[in-house]
């Protein structure tokens, strides 16, 4: 079983606040451009396809599959050195976006590319949470 990770607090600014506050409500928020329909992540103030600022936020399903992963055996950073070995992964959401994340709640040796996973949230101080994934 994976050990508990103490996630460092992400830096939050005007452009990314909706995402992190969404995580605090246990919603995985993605962006869509109202002008051209482009889906984008990470959040930005403008659509990077057409530069429109008509950006809407919507909650993703929170389900996806492992696109790639690495079981990490060495990291000196606090929060992670106590959690070794932990699983760093790209998860491809049903919506097509890929998120860098951790896979938790299973034995690291059971993680495979293509494994179906679902989001869960690690609550940090304040109203922010860090999304990560466990096997479905």
């Amino acid at each position: 079983m994976t050990k508990p990770i103490k996630h460092p607090r992400p830096g939050v600014d005007w452009e990314t606040r909706a995402y992190w506050e969404g995580c605090g409500r246990h919603e995985l928020i993605l962006q869509r451009c109202r002008s051209c329909g482009t889906l984008q992540h990470r959040p930005r103030a403008l659509c990077v396809s057409c530069l429109s600022d008509e950006i809407e936020h919507f909650p993703a399903s929170g389900r996806g599959t492992v696109y790639s992963f690495t079981v990490t055996h060495q990291n000196q950073a606090p929060g992670f050195r106590e959690a070794l070995p932990y699983v760093l992964a790209y998860v491809e959401l049903e919506e097509g976006v890929r998120l860098l994340t951790n896979i938790v709640g299973c034995s690291p040796e059971n993680v495979r590319i293509g494994l179906p996973v679902e989001v869960e949230y690690a609550q940090l101080e304040g109203d922010i949470a860090v999304p990560r994934f466990h096997p479905l």
């Binding site: 460092p8 992400p10 830096g11 939050v12 990291n75 959690a83 760093l88 860090v130 990560r132």
Partner: peptide, 18 residues
């Protein structure tokens, strides 16, 4: 590991990307 609160790396720092 990456430490720091830069919003531009906020989508990797919480996960222990090395």
């Amino acid at each position: 590991g990456q430490i720091g609160r830069d919003p531009a790396t906020a989508f990797s720092t919480p996960y222990g990307l090395t």
